[in-house]
């Protein structure tokens, strides 16, 4: 089994095929999209491949150690940051092929007009613990 992180971006990913922002969809299209995402996670729970999924607030800040006895240094949020993560899902699957298949399925979530978004998702393998058998 191998764990993968699927990242959904607010910004920074190449534009999806169906590039209408969500607030320009009809309320029913928004509902259909949400339902697709939930059904997808439910299916993975049933197949035993779901680990975690979280949506992130867009605003955040950069934080840095400020030195001995000093408060943390904060900066941002940086509006000009090219990349912004909207949320993530962690899956635990048998193969890289399976991870690709699932990411593609998630990317097909419906958007404006009920058409698949073809959204670009970032798929990152998580480093695992060392295996017991090394030779």
């Amino acid at each position: 089994m191998a764990k993968y992180l699927m990242l959904k971006h607010y910004r920074g990913a190449p534009a999806p095929a169906n590039d209408v922002p969500m607030d320009r969809w009809t309320p029913d299209e928004v509902s259909a999209h949400m339902r697709y995402m939930e059904d997808f996670a439910d299916r993975l729970r049933e197949t035993g491949e779901f680990v975690d999924s979280q949506a992130l607030a867009p605003g955040g800040s950069w934080v840095q150690y400020g030195g001995e006895g000093r408060p943390p240094v904060t900066d941002g949020p940086f509006a000009e940051t090219k990349d912004l993560i909207a949320g993530f899902m962690v899956i635990d699957v048998d193969s890289h092929e399976r991870a690709l298949e699932l990411a593609a399925e998630l990317s097909a979530a419906p958007g404006a007009g009920g058409e698949p978004l073809h959204e670009w998702l970032e798929l990152r393998p998580m480093l695992s613990a060392p295996t017991t058998v090394e030779d």
Binding site: R24, W25, P27, V30, A57
Partner: peptide, 29 residues
């Protein structure tokens, strides 16, 4: 739209996005 970006829960964000969508896509919804 601005409020949705500041929402503290996914359900709240969804609700606010739907409100924006309703106003953007016409009164029939």
């Amino acid at each position: 739209v601005e409020a949705a970006a500041r929402a503290r829960s996914a359900a709240e964000r969804e609700h606010l996005t739907r409100q924006a969508a309703r106003l953007h896509t016409g009164p029939e919804d």
